[in-house]
Structures are given as C-alpha cells and as structure tokens.
Design a protein around this nucleic acid. Structure first.
Lengths: 224, 224
DNA sequence: CTAGCATATATTGTATACAAAATACATGCA
DNA sequence: TGCATGTATTTTGTATACAATATATGCTAG
C-alpha cells in the first residue's frame, strides 16, 4: 500500500557525475574542442560548483581518453593524431565484427523492431537538419545493435572507441550529401539482420565506419 | 654544457597517481579482495595522505572497472559474476586474435628475442615459487606480444580486460601442477611467431586464456 | 632591441572544514 | 521478545584554504 510513495527516490546524482556528463557532452558535441584547456576554476565558476567535483570529473574523462592532463599544467581535451585514429579503427573493426556476429545470433524480434524504428527515426531526423538530433539518432541506431549482444563490457568498450571519433565527425554530418549513403548503409545492416547474414552485417558496418573515418581523418589533419 | 643538470626533472608524480598505482597493485595482488570496501579516511590514514588524492584515485579505478562506487555509500573493489567473466572472455578472445595477427606481421627480430627472453624468465620464475614474480613474468611475456602490435589503444584495452581476470587467477598460479601447461603454451606461442603462423598463435593464446578462465570461474563461484 | 632576471599572477596540488546522508546502536513501548 | 524510533557515529559530498609550481609581465643591463 506504500508502493506509490517510493517513486524516484533515486533522483540524486553526485555533482561529479553531473559535471562529468556535462563536460563529456560538450566534448562530443564539439563545444569543447580538442586541445582546449580545462581549467578547474573557470569550469567551476561556469557550472556553479567548487573545484572538487570538477577535478573528479576530469579524472573520469581522462580515463575515458577524452581528456589528457599534464601534471602541474592542467587538463585539456584530448587531441587525436592520424595514428591514433588508425589504431582506434583497427580495434573497432574487430569489435564491430564481434558485435555483429553475436547480435546476429541473439537478436530478438523485439530488438529487430527497435532497429527498424531507429532506422526510420534517423531517416526522419536527416530531414530536420537538426545536427544534434541527427547525431543522436545515428548513435541510437548502433546502440540497438551493440546492446543486442547482451555484453555490457563490449558495449562499453565500443562506446569508448566511438566517442573518440564522434567529436571529429560533426563535419561529416553537416554535409547533406552524405545522408543518402548513411541511409543506404543503415538499410543494408538491417537487411543483414533480417536475413541473418553475419558477413553482410560486418561488411556493411565496416564500410559505414570507413566512410566516416575518411572524413574524420580530414578533420584531424586540419587540426594538426 | 648545461645538459647534465637536466636529468630526471620528471621525478615528480601527483599523489593521486601514486595512490592509484598502489591501490591497483593491491587489488591485482589480492591484498584488497573483491567486495572489500574502500573507505577514504581509512585509506588516507594508511597511506599518509589526505582524502583528496584518495578520492581521485578511486575515480580512476572506477573507470578501469576495478572499483565500484555507490553514491553516498562509498566505493568497493569490483566483484565479477560468471556472466561478467564470460563477457570479458568473449571480447578478449577477439582482441587477442587481432593482436596475434598484427603482432605476427609486425614483430621485429629484436622483439622476438625479447619474447624468448621473457619466456625463459617465466620458466626460471616458476622454479622460485615466488608467486608475485611468476605473475609478473607471465604478464611481461604477453606484454611483449601486445606491444609488438604498435597499437597503444589496443594494448590499453587488452590490459584492461586482463586486469579483470588477474585478481582472480592467483589461485591458478599457486598450483605448481599448472606450470608445465603454461610453459608449453608459451612455447607454442613463440613457435607460432617464429613460423609466422597466425592461426597457431591465435589458437595457442585462446587455449592459454581458456585454461586460466576455468580456474577463475571456480574462484568466482566461491566468491558468490 | 634583446636576454636574462625579478616579481606578480594564475593555476594546480593537497589538506582541511563543514554539511548531509547512511549506518549502527540503544532505548522504550506494545 | 520484537519492533519502531530517536540519537550518536561514521562516512561520503562539497567547498574552501593554503602551498607549490608554472606562466606571464615588466624591468634592467648589455
């Protein structure tokens, strides 16, 4: 009878987590650019908190590879070199293939429906020209696949690798010319899942990533 | 002419890093067991520092998956379930194969010599019954392989996956009966590199990991 | 005008102080 | 006895204070 009182007693989040998510978003959206300094006092003032949660959030970002700190100098948004990009791609290719294989075997009808919905939502979003939303729906599409593996560790690691690219691929998504390609690739992936064709999925995901990688490489070169 | 003054100006390490490494070691060696609470004040007293570096170190451990913190409750050494173990193994298998392939192609003669040396050092260590040293030399052997990929991101990710197992495999290394098996597996890996046989390397690494995984699973079951 | 130095300022590193919540424990009541 | 409640203690969350170092500024000497 007291059940209805207990809703969201879990609304509390430590400030370090709020700060972490805020900074993370800012980095991925490009509001904080690679190489930009992360000064504690400044961030603390901007977010209206003390340095303590800021510092802890920076430690977390650091471990995720989104920030780099030099002792007694401070932290900055991590920069990627071309080599870094290649390294990331090499690993991601392997994990994408793994994910494709597992997901192909385990995916439920419900998840497949989700995937199709996500594809449509992406398609819709490309017509809104709302960049943030386009990026979001694309992420969501792939999330469905990764989550279908039922392997949180894998989801986590791929997520980490994706983040590294995301902050450089904004330009790619800005160019409307790329949307048809993206859509075609999504469709092919879905088709692969429908026909339970592991090779097809893996291949489609590979070219999907490769296409974006090309654009990211350009961005990285400009930065250097 | 002023060159000789500049040596190791880099001796400084922030306390957070010292604490991080100390706790990390303690977890991997089993001094801090899965489920054990990490209380800030207690750790601060024991290590002779304030809570600040302790907290930052905990945030880092958390991101590495070695600690888990519940808001307003505190941190504890992460526990693994059987499922976690399987998830980790699934990913590790894929990355080990990737590493084997890359390393097989790129490995230099110098690195191959290193690998052989590492193998011998491991063999020597098994005769000393010094558990810490045995674990160390085994880690070093595999490090040579991973580093030969020349892909730091991959090295880092595999390292992370290995850590998850290491803290549970101490028992495996305690049992002398396992040494001959381990040695044989190491020899096979080296042989694979000598003959540039990717399949052989990957297969040897897979069984190598699988054997340890069996022991780790037992430990995990006991913990539960 | 530049190099080098002294000083001032900004920034990080670490410790501590205070607030808030969780936990443990004791007490009183049915 | 069992259980609810209130209180004390512990522990985390956050802010602040102080120390040490790095960076910027300006000045003087050559």
């Amino acid at each position: 009878m007291t059940d209805h009182l207990t809703l969201n007693m879990d609304a509390y989040l430590p400030l370090r987590d709020v700060v972490f998510h805020t900074l993370r978003e800012a980095i991925l959206k490009g509001d904080l650019k690679p190489g930009e300094r992360l000064m504690e006092l400044q961030l603390a003032a901007k977010l209206g908190v003390s340095r303590t949660p800021i510092r802890e959030a920076i430690r977390m970002l650091e471990q995720e590879g989104l920030a780099v700190t030099i002792p007694r100098k401070g932290a900055e948004v991590a920069k990627m070199t071309e080599k870094d990009m290649q390294d990331v791609l090499q690993v991601r290719e392997a994990l994408d293939e793994l994910a494709a294989n597992i997901a192909c075997e385990r995916i439920t009808q419900e998840e497949l429906d989700e995937l199709v919905t996500a594809m449509h939502e992406f398609e819709t979003s490309t017509r809104t020209k709302d960049l943030k939303r386009i990026a979001e729906t694309d992420v969501k599409f792939h999330d469905v696949i990764y989550r279908a593996t039922d392997n949180p560790k894998l989801v986590n690691m791929v997520g980490n690798l994706r983040e590294q690219m995301y902050r450089y691929r904004v330009e790619y998504l800005k160019d409307e010319k790329n949307y048809p390609t993206l859509l075609k690739e999504h469709k092919e992936i879905v088709e692969g899942f429908r026909s339970k064709n592991k090779g097809m999925i893996a291949e489609a995901m590979r070219t999907h990533v490769a296409n974006q990688a090309a654009a990211v490489q350009v961005m990285i070169k400009e930065q250097e």
